[in-house]
Design a protein around this nucleic acid. Sequence first.
DNA 1: GCAAATTCATTCGTATGCAAATGATATCAG
DNA 2: CTGATATCATTTGCATACGAATGAATTTGC
Lengths: 151, 151
Amino acid sequence: MTTGKAPLLLVGDESDDTYRLQDQVGFVLRKAHQRHVAIFASRIVDLTPPQFAALARLYEIGETSQNQLGQMIAMDAATVKGVIDRLRARGYVDLKKHDADKRLLLVSLSAAGREAVVELIARAKAITEETLAPLTAKEAAQFLRLLVKIA
Amino acid sequence: MTTGKAPLLLVGDESDDTYRLQDQVGFVLRKAHQRHVAIFASRIVDLTPPQFAALARLYEIGETSQNQLGQMIAMDAATVKGVIDRLRARGYVDLKKHDADKRLLLVSLSAAGREAVVELIARAKAITEETLAPLTAKEAAQFLRLLVKIA
DNA sequence: GCAAATTCATTCGTATGCAAATGATATCAG
DNA sequence: CTGATATCATTTGCATACGAATGAATTTGC
């Protein structure tokens, strides 16, 4: 018995007056996320996960507006702006105004951006693997299924 | 069939050249964390999850040094300092220097802090429940078990 | 066709989160 | 006892992340 924890708490058990931070989803979710980011940083040094997410999504779908890209990668308008600004400063994305709708700022991968993505995707797969390494293949599939439900 | 997705990818399948951002653990982990934070914010308006984590941990263990508290709630020294500063500004924690070891900054709950924690724990339980609401009780237990392994 | 509502991008303020550097203190090796 | 190491707290710089406010442009309702 490596995990000699206290009796399992049923999810709906409100009457229990115990509350252990380490057992709460939110706390563990935050730690898991931190671990993943650390793994990411060790394998992709020059980009952050949100920056890579933007590149990967642009690679999948081509050109979009800044806001729409944000929705697709779960970033609000303020956040996506900063991410795109930094990617632009590195020459990974091109920006231009939409002809018809002058509110829209269209974002697309530059040649350098496309090149970078192709090279990075291999590493991204390794990052996914290392993050899931504590689980068996079966557990990983199960985990991902439930995680998607939670997200 | 509501989820008519592409064929499942085995975890170790490196040869496949598909890469869908939405299927990667890191991306979904980030979204799940975001959803949790949003639920937290809707139920506890005046504190952030890290701030509550600090209070809850202090409630469990009593007085500790700032750095040690940080380790217990997975925050580095720089981060925990900001969190404790803000809790102190609200009068939720007391700080004092250690007598013997003058490097240590001891942190403990104030009376107001203890009072707040007791009241907040009930809401924190509701937050955990709402976060796990998309899962059945069985799934939630399974999910938590795997999440702990990942974290 | 025009006022009202909506959408898009931007900016500001606040709060994590981490790396790296720094100064003060404590411990360790010889 | 003392020089080398280690630990603790702090500070700075950078990158998410979100709420709220703003101005420009578009769409809707009537």
